[in-house]
């Protein structure tokens, strides 16, 4: 089930986008998301063009990204339907107790476009950046927050450990599930509440094992001289190259264009 989600998966090819500094990609994604909420209509055309260019450059097949959208189709439908029927305004179509307003259509369309672009934009980032690079980038970008005593290094370390243990814990879940099924457990039938209840005997051993792993890992890290972020050097330090500077400028140019385009016609 979790295997179908493209969001957060790395697509290993070599491209200009892949080689960019993760900080550039993080900032660009943030600006892209902001631009979706600031610019309107014509702004979306600029955003779509920009996104398609980036996808083309990243060498990740468009089909692959679109397939990742399937996971959120349900949420999107939900949001669109609610907006269609529940927005007050001038009635466009009306039947039984339900009515669709022009404002509703407008809002629903805007929401759908925003959601699609937002998810595609952020999946481009995760598809072109290794999780390790991503956490490194986050750590560096958030470094100023250390002034207000936020343990940035520790949070980044926790994130990367969590990422490393996801496949291990999934495998373990599978094993426990099979062991329980072999002894007559039933995870399939019954209503939602019954299904949720049947997960308890699965979660308890999983948690116990996760704590044991955490304990082992902490000991292994201490044995390898881990003492927090202080005095630590990096095997792969993040260093900006000229391409990253160019990318920053292009992203800023896009951001300006998007806002200007959004104001032009309306």
């Amino acid at each position: 089930m979790l295997r179908n989600i493209t969001l957060g998966q790395y697509y290993p090819v070599d491209s200009i986008i892949h080689r960019l500094d993760p900080r550039v990609k993080l900032v660009a994604t943030l600006l892209f998301i902001i631009s979706l909420f600031v610019g309107r209509y014509t702004g979306y055309i600029v955003a779509t063009l920009f996104l398609l260019t980036v996808i083309k450059l990243s060498k990740v097949p468009l089909r692959f990204i679109v397939r990742g959208m399937k996971a959120i189709v349900f949420i999107m439908l939900f949001a669109v339907v609610f907006n269609l029927f529940l927005t007050p305004g001038e009635v466009a179509v009306s039947f039984w107790v339900l009515s669709i307003t022009w404002e509703g259509i407008r809002l629903a369309a805007m929401l759908a476009i925003r959601l699609i672009l937002l998810l595609m934009g952020s999946s481009v980032m995760t598809l072109t950046t290794t999780p390790g690079n991503l956490t490194d980038g986050l750590e560096k970008l958030m470094r100023p927050l250390r002034v207000i005593r936020i343990p940035v290094h520790e949070v980044a370390m926790m994130m990367s450990i969590a990422l490393r243990f996801i496949p291990i814990l999934m495998e373990e879940t599978d094993k426990i599930m099979k062991a329980q099924i072999a002894r007559g457990a039933d995870f399939e039938s019954g209503n939602l509440i019954k299904k949720a209840k049947s997960l308890v005997p699965l979660l308890v051993p999983l948690f116990i094992s996760a704590f044991r792993r955490a304990n082992d890992l902490a000991m292994a890290m201490e044995a390898r001289c881990y003492q927090g972020g202080e005095h630590r050097t990096k095997m792969k330090p993040l260093i900006y190259r000229w391409q990253d500077g160019v990318a920053y400028l292009l992203v800023l140019a896009y951001f300006a264009a998007c806002i200007v385009a959004g104001r032009l016609l309306f």
Partner: peptide
């Protein structure tokens, strides 16, 4: 339970990173 890095070479580099060895 003792491999920290997400790539083999990064894990091997974990110890030296902690010791503050130059890149």
């Amino acid at each position: 339970n003792q491999i920290i890095g997400q790539v083999v070479e990064e894990d091997v580099g974990f110890g030296p990173e902690n010791m503050g060895i130059p890149t």
